[in-house]
């Protein structure tokens, strides 16, 4: 599919990892570059709400 074939096996991919010369599907947005510096304030707000001691209290039993 990524070299222009008619068979599309990954039809739902919204973005394709960046890289020179990469093709994208017609309905896909432009490939995104990782830009974590622009990650929204919403994420930081969410992070600030996390209880600093949460992992200390988090206890599970051994699984497989």
């Amino acid at each position: 599919m990524f070299d222009g074939e008619s068979v599309v096996l990954f039809p739902e991919r919204k973005t394709i990892p960046g890289g020179p010369g990469r093709e994208t599907q017609k309905d896909s947005p432009v490939p995104k570059r990782p830009e974590t510096k622009k990650t929204g304030d919403r994420l930081m707000d969410r992070m600030k709400k996390v209880d600093p001691n949460q992992s200390e209290r988090y206890r599970q039993r051994t699984g497989e």
């Binding site: 919204k14 995104k32 929204g40 919403r42 969410r46 992992s55 200390e56």
Partner: peptide, 26 residues
């Protein structure tokens, strides 16, 4: 604790879920 919260599957709480929603994760 933030590491743990990255893995919370709730779309309104998990940190990964926020990254994915904003398009910062594929």
């Amino acid at each position: 604790s933030l590491d743990l919260e990255y893995h919370n599957i709730d779309p309104d709480q998990g940190l990964f879920r926020a990254l994915e929603e904003s398009g910062d994760m594929l």
